Amino acid sequence: MSTSSFWSGPVRGGAPSAAQSASSAGLTAAGNLFDKAVGALAQGDEDKARRLAAQAADRPFDDHEGIWPGPWAAHFALFQLVTNEIEEWPEGDHTWIDALEDLAAGASGRQLRELRHLAAVLRQDARLLGVDEHEARQLGRLTGGADPAEQPADEVSEVERADYVLELARLVLAAENRFGSPGEPMPAPGERRRPDPGDASVRGGSPRRA
C-alpha cells in the first residue's frame, strides 16, 4: 500500500500498462459517481445521493493501487478541494484556516477523522503548499494527533464503505459552501459553489501563493 496522501496517477513514464489504464479508469469512474453524489446532496436529493455513493463504494478493488476506489475517490476529492483553495488564497490571508476549523468544529466520527488527517497532511506538506509557520501551527492543533501516513480510507470495512462515501460527500459539500471569498453569499438551494481557480475575480485579484 502506498503511503501517499492522495492518489497521484499510475503513469511513471512511457505508455501506461493495461493494469495502469484499468486502475485509472476505475478511479475516474468512482470520482465521477462521488461528484454526482455531492451534486445530489446540493439539490436536496438524499435518496439519489445515497444510491450514487453506494455505486461508488461498490467499484471493484483496485489491485494495481491496492485500494477501494470509492472511499479513495472521496478522500481525494476533499484533499483536492482544500489544497486548491490554499494555493489560490491571497498571501498573508489566514482565513482559510478559520474555514477549516469551522468545518472541524461541526464534524464528528468519519468526517472529523478525515479532517484531522487532512490537517496532518497539510502540515506535513506545508512548504510544498506555501503554508506559512502561523498556519502550520494552527494545523498542528487541528490534527488531534492524526498520523498523515495512516489513511482513514484504508480503515473502512466492506459494510461501512457506502456510508463512508456518503458522509464524505456531505463533508465536501459543506467545504465547498464554507470556502469562498469573504462576504460572498451562500449558494442558493440546488447550487454548488465551485469557483474557477483561474478566475482572478474569485479572490478580488489578490496575489496568489508562490
Rank of each mutant, 00 (worst) to 15 (best):
T3H: 14
T3N: 10
W7K: 00
G9V: 13
G9C: 12
G9S: 08
P10D: 09
G14A: 05
G14S: 04
P16T: 04
P16Q: 07
A19R: 08
Q20L: 01
Q20S: 02
S21A: 14
A25L: 11
A25Q: 15
A25W: 05
T28M: 11
A30Q: 00
A30C: 00
A30I: 00
N32G: 10
N32H: 14
F34E: 07
K36T: 15
G39C: 05
A40L: 11
L41W: 07
A42N: 03
D45K: 08
A49Q: 02
R50V: 09
R50A: 08
R51T: 14
R51S: 10
A53K: 02
A56M: 04
R59I: 09
P60I: 12
D62H: 04
D62S: 02
D63Y: 15
E65C: 08
E65R: 02
G66F: 11
I67E: 09
W68V: 07
P71W: 06
W72S: 06
A74Q: 04
H75L: 00
F76L: 03
F76H: 04
F76C: 03
L78I: 10
L78G: 06
F79M: 07
E85W: 15
E87C: 11
E87M: 15
P90W: 03
G92N: 02
G92V: 12
G92Q: 02
D93Y: 12
D93I: 14
H94F: 13
W96K: 01
W96M: 01
I97P: 03
L100K: 10
L100G: 09
D102R: 15
D102K: 13
A105H: 13
G106Q: 09
G106F: 05
S108F: 07
G109F: 03
E114T: 07
H117S: 02
L118W: 12
A120C: 04
A120F: 09
V121F: 10
L122W: 12
Q124K: 04
L129R: 05
L129F: 12
V131N: 01
D132F: 13
H134G: 10
E135W: 13
E135H: 10
A136I: 04
Q138S: 14
L139D: 07
R141V: 11
R141L: 14
L142V: 07
G145P: 05
A146C: 04
A146G: 03
A149P: 03
A149Y: 10
E150H: 14
E150C: 12
P152G: 03
A153C: 01
D154C: 04
E155G: 05
E155I: 06
S157V: 01
E158I: 09
R161K: 07
A162D: 07
D163F: 02
D163S: 05
D163E: 05
V165Y: 02
L166K: 00
A169D: 09
V172C: 01
A174V: 12
R178D: 12
R178L: 10
P182V: 05
G183D: 08
E184S: 10
P185K: 06
P187Y: 00
P187C: 00
A188G: 03
P189H: 11
P189V: 10
P189I: 11
E191N: 00
E191D: 01
E191G: 00
R193I: 01
S201E: 14
V202K: 06
R203E: 14
G205T: 15
R209V: 14
R209W: 15
A210N: 08
